[in-house]
Every structure is written in C-alpha cells, then in structure tokens.
C-alpha cells in the first residue's frame, strides 16, 4: 500500500454567508486536489480566488460546507493531522508582548516538544531567518518583514513534513524573497512538502514543481509546470513581410497575435491547424518566415490564458 498523498481534497466546498441578508459567497467549490509527498506546489489565483480559504479548510480554521480534506491520510478536522505541519499565515501577527524566542518556544510546546529540543531548534531557526540579535525583544516593535521571517521560523519549529505558506513572498523585500526561495528549496531537499499560495507568478514559476490555478473558488488547471506551460503553447514565428500585405488584417482573419520586437515582426500562431494556413501563405510568397519554433510560455501567460479560456 502506497503512502497517502501529503494533501488530498475531495469535492471540498466552502460557502460563506455575509451580512444581514446572508448573501451566499462561494469561496471554494468542489475542489479536488492532490499534492504528493516532497513536492513544491504553488497555488495561484487572484485576490479573493479562494486560496486562503483552502488553506483554512486544510488547517481546520474553517469547516467545509461539504467534501473533505486530508493531510497524509488524516482528516483535517482532526487536530492530529497538524502534528507534522508548519503554517505561515498571510501577514502574520503575533502576541505583542512576547519576545521572538518566547513565541517560538510556545509553538514548540504546542507540538509537545521537549524543552532542550525547543531551545536548540529555536536558536537555529532564529539564526536561519536572521533574527538572532532581536530574539529577546517584544514583538510589538517588529516590522512587517521581521514578523514574516518570525512566522517562517515558528512554522518550522516542529521539523514539519508539510509546510503551508500563505502568500509567503508578499511582505518581503527582494533579498528576503531570494532567501525565502532558498529556504524553500532547502526544505524540498530535506524531503519536505511545500504548499504555498501566491499571486506573484514569477516566484511561483521559479520554485514550484506543480501549480494549481484557482479562480472564483474553482480549480481551473493543475499540473506540473512543464505541462501547464507547454499546454497548447502554439508557435512563435519570426517573419518578413513582402510588398503590400496587410499583416494586421491577415492576423485578424486567422486569429494570430502580432508582436513587434527589435524592429522585427513576430507572430504567435496558437495551434497546428493555423500553422498550415501560415505555410500556405508562405508558399504564396507573401511572407518570408525567418524562424519557426515552439513558443516559450511563462506562467503569467499560461495563467491569463486559463482565465481567458474559462471566461470564454
């Protein structure tokens, strides 16, 4: 029997009721998600897409309206599911009158760790996030970035096998982001599963193995980064136009997209069918292709394409 996946949700759904009118908000709808052990999974979507709600459901901060979620096979409603989980909230806030060291120690105690382990590990983690010299100051004087780092340290106190990070790159400066990416890569090397939500696609593209795109509570696409980026990427064609051809009209007719770069003419041809039309055009001598290649898509484009597809 194979070990259960790190995260598995089945038809996970959460509705909220808002205001006096009890207006129904569908935060997450029929979410089927599976994150394997050792993966770095990026959960991307616009603000309000349902990323944070999904995390809340995984952590039992909220109860699902229907469906279920499990962490390593243990239902999320059971506190034991969180025994080897680390969690960093979006814009974390901590007790104002505790010191950083006390907070981390407190978190360690909630995991049932021994005093000596807590001491050793909190010292190491505070060093890792660069807060060693401010470990004994009350948190009310900490900046947003420092709280974010402390949040990461407390998330790792229990040597977790699954780390859930909500917008971890949000409050950080560029150097902080680089450092955090390194930390996440380090976690992966140690065999830890990382699930993070983000709307910063560039960072997601750099570190994620797999990506899920969520929009209005629904999972639009999910797969490895390669799959997602190469899914119907189309063709990149560089060409020269001869004579009086109205390229714009041609593009409009065939549904190509025209791009101009370095004074050269580029078009994007979405699929193979369309490419045949281009060959016909080239054969007629109206255009002279300079290069034809598979298109390199970044996550941003893939994301927008998925949204377009969903709306169209």
């Amino acid at each position: 029997m194979s070990s259960p996946p790190a995260i598995q949700t089945e038809r996970l759904t959460k509705h909220y009721r808002l205001g006096v009118t009890r207006r129904k908000i569908e935060a997450v709808v029929d979410l089927d998600l599976e994150v394997g052990e050792g993966e770095i999974f990026a959960f991307i979507g616009l603000n309000g897409a349902g990323k944070t709600t999904t995390l809340k459901l995984l952590l039992d901060h909220a109860r699902p309206t229907r469906g279920s979620a499990a962490i390593f096979g243990v239902n999320c409603r059971d506190p034991r599911a969180r025994a080897r989980v680390g969690y960093l909230p979006d814009l974390p806030h901590f007790y104002r009158f505790l010191t950083a060291r006390e907070l981390i120690d407190y978190c360690g105690r909630l995991f049932g760790m021994k005093r000596s382990d807590r001491k050793e590990r909190s010292r190491r983690l505070l060093g890792l996030v660069g807060l060693s010299d401010r470990a004994d100051e009350p948190l009310k004087g900490f900046s947003r970035g420092m709280l974010q780092r402390l949040g990461l340290a407390q998330a790792l106190i229990n040597d977790p096998v699954l780390v859930l990070l909500d917008e971890p790159l949000g409050g950080l400066d560029p150097i902080g982001r680089v450092e955090l990416r390194e930390v996440i890569s380090g976690l992966k090397r140690e065999g830890c599963t990382v699930f993070f939500s983000s709307h910063i696609l560039d960072d997601a593209q750099r570190i994620a193995d797999r990506v899920g795109i969520i929009h209005r509570g629904r999972l639009l696409a999910c797969g490895s980064l390669e799959d997602l980026l190469l899914k119907n990427p189309g063709w990149d064609v560089e060409l020269e136009v001869s004579g009086d051809l109205d390229l714009e009209a041609v593009c409009r007719r065939y549904g190509w997209r025209q791009e101009l770069s370095d004074g050269r003419c580029h078009i994007v041809i979405p699929d193979d069918e369309s490419l045949k039309e281009f060959y016909a055009l080239a054969a007629s001598g109206q255009v002279r292709p300079q290069s034809i290649g598979r298109r390199q898509v970044n996550l941003e484009e893939a994301f927008i394409a998925e949204l377009d597809r969903w709306q169209g």
Partner: peptide
C-alpha cells in the same frame, strides 16, 4: 481579529 490565533490553531491544539 488580529490573526494571532491563526498560527496557534495551526498546531495540533484542539
């Protein structure tokens, strides 16, 4: 309200 409870209840704490 302040969200200080979120990291705490993310621990195995009923």
């Amino acid at each position: 309200e302040r969200g200080t409870i979120l990291p705490i209840l993310a621990k195995p704490l009923p």
